[in-house]
């Protein structure tokens, strides 16, 4: 075990996988970091520092600095994957996914199906996402809700450095396209990470982050930390919460959610996305249809409102879910009779 930051866990994992498998290539905007500047390659190290050192170690054939064209990046990743490579593409901000929707949604997600299973498309598209950096409506969004809606894609939302490592290794080795969503706020998070070069976390396997008998809090990615903080605060009042870290929203670990709600009877879903047709509503619907008899109170959803992410700091913090809002939601569901 080693104590690593989330961004370092991602970089180390890519590094180890590139060493292990020559088919793994990295591409994206400024992934070399400093190319074309006076300092030369690696002078900056990529804006998220998730690819620093890769260019020096693996060279221009395997670490490809692309033009500022997300459709080119995703299109190239799809082509590389079809041609037998294991591309790890980076979209600098998940918000830019819109311009490459055909490549992602209508091509990469569909290849295996359209080719009758004779072809695979093992592309990993990494996307930093999320609000909280005062970066305004076009650089602050989460996108898991609509990529989860696309059959053919797997969607991963690691919440800790260790999960980032185990899930990214699984994503690179997986034969299907994987959308790997890294919350920008988590890059600085430190945690113990397995140094086993074979450490993988299977998809569709939720993590129980806290255990309690009074309510179930379901979250993914960045929201898991908030849910844990809320559960810890509630625990001081003797209120025990199961905190379920979904890890992947597609496939979804339905069993973990239903098993827990069958015990607690109360559900709080936390989601940074606006509430309509979202992960939160999906899980609320799942529980309403498959664990209705276990529910003792209406499901509470802690989500962003149905608006773009605000720029102003005060508005942005009012927009986002928070531990305090989750605590209030748990208390609300416990107060139902």
């Amino acid at each position: 075990m080693a104590k690593l930051m989330y961004r370092d866990a991602i970089r180390n994992t890519i590094f180890q996988e590139m060493q292990r498998d020559p088919r793994v290539v990295v591409l994206g905007e400024d992934v070399v970091g400093g190319m074309g500047t006076a300092g030369g390659p690696e002078a900056i190290g990529g804006i998220w520092s998730t690819s620093t050192g890769l260019y020096d170690a693996f060279g221009p054939d395997r670490v490809i600095d692309t033009p500022i064209s997300e459709s080119a990046i995703v299109g190239a990743a799809g082509g590389l994957a079809l041609a037998g490579k294991r591309p790890v593409a980076e979209i600098m901000f998940a918000d830019f996914i819109g311009v490459c929707m055909d490549q992602l949604w209508n091509q990469i997600a569909k290849f295996r199906y359209m080719f009758g299973g004779k072809s695979i498309c093992p592309a990993v598209i990494r996307m930093p996402c999320g609000a909280g950096y005062n970066a305004a409506a076009q650089h602050s969004q989460v996108i898991h809700q609509f990529v989860t809606n696309m059959p053919g894609l797997k969607v991963v939302m690691p919440s800790t450095p260790e999960d980032a490592c185990g899930l990214l290794r699984q994503a690179i080795r997986d034969d299907d396209p994987v959308i790997f969503l890294e919350h920008k706020f988590l890059y600085g998070m430190s945690g113990e990470v397995s140094d086993d070069p074979e450490f993988c976390i299977p998809f569709g396997h939720a993590r129980l982050a806290r255990a309690g008998l009074d309510a179930t809090i379901v979250a993914a990615g960045m929201m898991v930390g908030y849910a844990e903080a809320a559960a810890d605060e509630l625990a001081r009042d003797g209120i025990g919460c199961d905190v379920i870290d979904l890890r992947t929203t597609s496939p979804l670990d339905e069993e973990a959610i239903l098993d827990s709600v069958e015990v607690t009877g109360r559900l709080v879903v936390v989601d940074e996305a606006p509430p309509r047709c979202s992960l939160a509503t999906d899980i609320a619907a799942l529980v309403a249809s498959k664990a209705f008899a276990s529910l003792k109170a209406p499901t509470e959803m802690v989500t962003a409102p149905h608006t773009p992410v605000p720029f102003a700091r005060e508005l942005e913090s009012a927009y986002l879910p928070s531990p305090a809002k989750i605590v209030a939601a748990v208390r609300q569901t416990l107060s139902y009779r």
């Binding site: 129980l208 806290r210 255990a211 309690g212 009074d214 009042d237 003797g238 025990g240 416990l334 107060s335």
Partner: peptide, 17 residues
């Protein structure tokens, strides 16, 4: 509102690989 009735925490069993 319902009076607060809690069952409290459960033992957290860590996920081993």
């Amino acid at each position: 509102p319902a009076p607060l009735a809690t069952k409290g925490l459960a033992a957290l069993v860590a996920d081993d690989g």
